[in-house]
Design a protein around this nucleic acid. Structure first.
Lengths: 239, 239
DNA sequence: CGCTTAAGTTAACTGCGGTTCAAGTTTTTA
DNA sequence: TAAAAACTTGAACCGCAGTTAACTTAAGCG
């Protein structure tokens, strides 16, 4: 078995790779929250463990084995987030921190049981896809609202999950995965993004718009039963 | 915060003390699963951390602070066991191992939520009392069936929780906390303990009898609604 | 094309938590 | 009561995971 620390690095490398083609050590360091030197050392270890391939001063890539572990941990994380919300009544801004610790310590048995109890959900409460047990991952959907330029009807696919304050902000506005919004325009000089939602005009702050990922409204979200509803509320799993 | 390792030692010392007056290093070593030398070193650390008072070659005692942590961990463990059985459908022989890892990693928030969801249970599935959040602990009930000599009507208070095989054995016999049994006699020459349970005669093996703790039947178990039922089945918490 | 600079790596060190082996202290027993 | 046995501790060591400080490398610019 791998240690929680190894798992954290694998997860960070995996996530960094889905964003940028080249994974930099700095990026990993920032994600894991350690110094660059710690990253260097760990990359050597991961290479020895055959979980990654690291050519010094150049890139890192996860091996099949490394990716498998990364996906297992991400699966644990997102299932746990979902479980904490659905079964224990956590709010969606609390779950990230709790899942971050628990993801390293639950058994496969635990994972399987909460998965079944939740009815095999496709996404976490923030809209990120839950990797399947076989290692397949549904495509990550949506582009940041902040990169939107033309007016359009859009559906919220997912939101950034790390900043609790931001999540409470979204929650206050009613902006959750599944919500259908109409992008109107951006206020000038780095201003807010104007969005019509549930009949009213909402101003989404620039930094919030970076963390709000939207898709074309015709795009059905996997597992979403009301692709273009305006309720803005995710379906709850009822036992 | 203390590390999982520190917590394991504190728990071991606490539990050892409830059994014997003098806590030996060996006992701790066996409980934690490490060498004697590791115990010596840790006792020095715990003393420095003011979690225990250790006079070399003589005893150890937990300080108030140390006992507080030990009880928190035990509370986590027993609540988790209960939760895994009630909410996730684990069998009672599976929960110890899972709880052993999770007990170090759940937050106070998590603890409070499962406690409320379970309706503030008084015991774990094996009958051990769950310490309250303020640090008070209901008395541990019952004496080993193996120390019984005279025929009597008894109620199963608790069973040893560490041996999964033994728990399945008890489960097969129907012997769970709350079960009312009649102790008849012991077979000669280190033989089984003869017990009448639910109308039939049951032979309890000697090593099992060491781990089956019984009390006088008039003794109401806290939180037990049917003190002298013969159903042998713990009430399930229904949501 | 070499020089600066930022990114990445290595080296030396720290703390934790374990090990084995040897030495010391109690306790038991002959 | 002295020797043996059992228990406890100390010393030297290891692996993991981090740190800071010094050194390499790669890249970009004048």
């Amino acid at each position: 078995m791998s240690t929680p620390s190894v798992e954290d690095y694998l997860k960070a490398i995996y996530k960094a790779r889905t964003n940028a083609e080249d994974v930099t050590s700095q990026d990993i360091a920032a994600r894991v929250g350690v110094s660059g030197a710690a990253v260097s050392k760990m990359l050597r270890r991961l290479t020895e463990l055959r979980l990654a391939e690291h050519t010094p001063y150049h890139g890192v890539r996860l091996t099949k084995a490394g990716e498998k572990i990364a996906l297992e941990i991400i699966r644990h994380h997102r299932l746990l987030e979902r479980y904490l919300v659905e079964a224990l009544g956590y709010s969606w801004d609390q779950v990230h921190v709790e899942a971050e610790r628990l993801e390293h310590h639950i058994s496969e048995e635990f994972e399987a049981r909460i998965d079944a109890l939740l009815g095999y959900p496709a996404t976490c409460p923030h809209g990120d896809p839950i990797p399947a047990r076989d290692g397949s991952v549904p495509a990550i959907r949506g582009t940041a609202l902040s990169s939107q330029s033309d007016a359009a009807t859009l559906v919220v696919e997912r939101v950034g999950d790390t900043d609790a304050k931001l999540l409470r902000y979204f929650d206050g506005l009613g902006l959750r995965p599944g919500a259908v919004i109409e992008f109107v325009e951006r206020e000038p000089f780095g201003g807010a993004f104007l969005v019509r939602f549930a009949g009213t005009l909402v101003r989404v702050a620039p930094e919030a718009a970076d963390q709000l990922f939207v898709g074309a409204c015709g795009n059905l979200r996997a597992g979403s039963e009301e692709p273009c509803s305006t309720s803005g509320v995710e379906r709850r799993v009822v036992e």
